[in-house]
Design a protein around this nucleic acid. Structure first.
Lengths: 344, 344
DNA sequence: CTGTTAGCGCCTTCAG
DNA sequence: CTGAAGGCGCTAACAG
């Protein structure tokens, strides 16, 4: 392959083909209105010169950036995001790229606010935004709404003009998990949960308490401890709990990594799981299926969540001015040894 | 604040200020050649109208995208990337944004090749590229080189025209760790390692073997098992190892998560750590400082790595045609209970 | 079916 | 110090 001088503009290709720039443009965009053999000739030239066109010029001309922004709040809760990062990001990225969109990544953290995100939105670097794990006190949401940028929230159920969301059944999952524990005879349960401003934690708590309520047995003792989810948090909370509520026979955790800390602390204190105490997690990380005992947990539909977020966003970008309905996807209960549901 | 009609072009601001577009442009870019009071007046107008300019038009005009691409190979090894994802990405994103660059995220996986990355490079959507965790058989590197795009590799030491790299002392870290084990009297060591095509694993093995060699005690027995690092891999490899080499008194792992599996398997088999067998990891994930026993491991300079990658890239983008020297950053050995270096 | 003509919005000489 | 004008590379509307 000669590879020749890598052509750099549409006009050079046009000159080579003996046609005008407009025609080459039509060919590149697979638009009608070009004769078959002209089209073939131009395509050959394009391939021969490995010509790709200039994205920026195209964007300027079409008035859109063909990019969507995704904002990862690194500070919010590493524990909520950590296990879901790769898969969610991969799903979003795949779906976006399939639709011809690039993904621009924005991060926010304690020291860096959200100004750079808004700035990029206003400069039209992105056509739309995906905001995973926004918490209820996230200032970005209101500001983004005022710009009118199509936006999809993941894991935070707040709808508005041009803003919709995708989430999964955090509440149903913990309702089912807790009910299962109660039916198996557990009577003193504690929920280890993260802060309520993160919607996922709030919903999980709701599911837990609804299960307790609906079970309706006055003998049941339940309580909830809120702290930053994490391995060490699980260890410490367990030690405290064993002192304060020695009768505990089930610990429901809002994160697998916390459950790992719980298992560790229980083992050191000589408690048998699930014999003395049942333990459950959330996320279904690698650890959960291989710990001793294996951990009952909840799996979120991460790939589907990412894909759905992109699809909702594309709907807003393409369609008129309507804002699509939010979507709630199903979680999967995974029962393993730590609740006694599976024989070791 | 009146917020008025949100001005949308530089010319509208110009008209309002009674000046020409060029002058407004000079003000927006903090360029000289505008009188103080004219400048002030224009700045006021800009602020009042919350005007931000159009990034695309600016890019087209300046011939650069002010974006850099970062390619995350999701398939390579989730275990290599998983623990480093958030911090590395955060560091890169922060540094890029501080320099006025946006970050475009590309993912590659089994089903999606690297074409979309090359396409975006050729369409000039990015001015440069950062490639973390490229393995030695990564086809992208050669193709990227042929485009002449400034590129920085992370964790893969391959230099070329307009390509440089940042890495850390994987080898020194395992050399130090292994030597420490030998000095403590361990004599039958096994390295649990990932595939050599991933540079980090290759270097870690080199450090391990160099330590064995330089220690020069013929009584030392060492071997290496290569498999996909992960919790379950650690469990299975340990079970096999205990059968095949019952005398084992140290297991050196190339990943904390694998070490977690090892600890789990050893505990179940009734072996004491570090009493019977010492265990070490790599990554210093949250788990490492809170497991029982706490895990000796190696901490990589993730934030610095990301920041350095961006800085090298900016150097190529700004500077002439020179390609900066690669950088090797220091890892930190963290000795804890699992090697007996710290009393439980 | 194809060429021509205007822009898209900003930046950057070049005059004045 | 400021205005005018041309151009970045592509797209789209309008003629032929």
């Amino acid at each position: 392959m000669s590879q020749s001088e890598q052509a750099t503009t549409i006009r050079e290709i046009a000159a080579l083909a003996g046609v005008s720039g407009g025609t080459v443009s039509r060919v590149m965009n697979e638009k009608p209105g070009v004769g078959p053999e002209t089209r073939a000739r131009i395509k050959a030239l394009i391939a021969e010169h490995d010509f790709h066109g200039d994205a920026t010029a195209r964007q300027l001309s079409r008035g859109r950036s063909d990019s969507l922004g995704i904002v990862f709040p690194l500070q919010v809760s590493e524990v909520v995001m950590h296990p879901v990062y790769p898969e969610l990001l991969g799903a979003i990225s795949d779906a976006a790229q399939d639709a011809g969109y690039d993904v621009i990544l924005f991060t926010t953290n304690a020291s860096r606010g959200v100004e750079h995100v808004l700035d990029s939105v206003k400069r039209k670097r992105v056509d739309g935004l995906i905001l995973p794990a926004a918490s209820s006190d996230d200032p970005l949401i209101a500001q983004v709404e005022s710009t009118g940028t199509p936006t999809v929230l993941i894991g935070h159920r707040q709808r508005a003009r041009r803003i919709t969301w995708v989430d999964c059944t955090h509440d149903e999952a913990l309702y089912a998990m807790t009910t299962s524990l109660l039916l198996a005879g557990r009577r003193a349960l504690t929920l280890f949960n993260g802060p309520k401003r993160i919607s996922a934690y709030d919903l999980r708590a709701q599911g837990f308490w609804r299960a307790i309520r609906e079970f309706g047995d006055p003998a049941v003792r339940a309580n909830e401890k809120v702290f930053d989810m994490g391995f060490v948090g699980g260890v410490e909370a367990t030690e405290t709990l064993l002192r304060e509520v020695p009768a505990t026979d089930a610990i429901v955790c809002s994160a697998d990594i916390t459950a790992a800390g719980v298992l560790d602390a229980l083992a050191r204190s000589g408690f048998a799981v699930p014999g003395d105490i049942a333990v459950t997690g959330f996320d279904d990380i690698d650890f959960a299926s291989h710990s001793t005992p294996t951990l009952s947990t909840v799996r979120m539909p991460l790939h589907e969540t990412g894909a759905t977020a992109v699809s909702l966003l594309l709907e807003m970008l393409g369609g008129g001015l309507t804002t699509p309905e939010p979507r709630i996807l199903e979680t999967t209960l995974v029962e393993r040894e730590s609740t006694g549901s599976v024989t070791p």
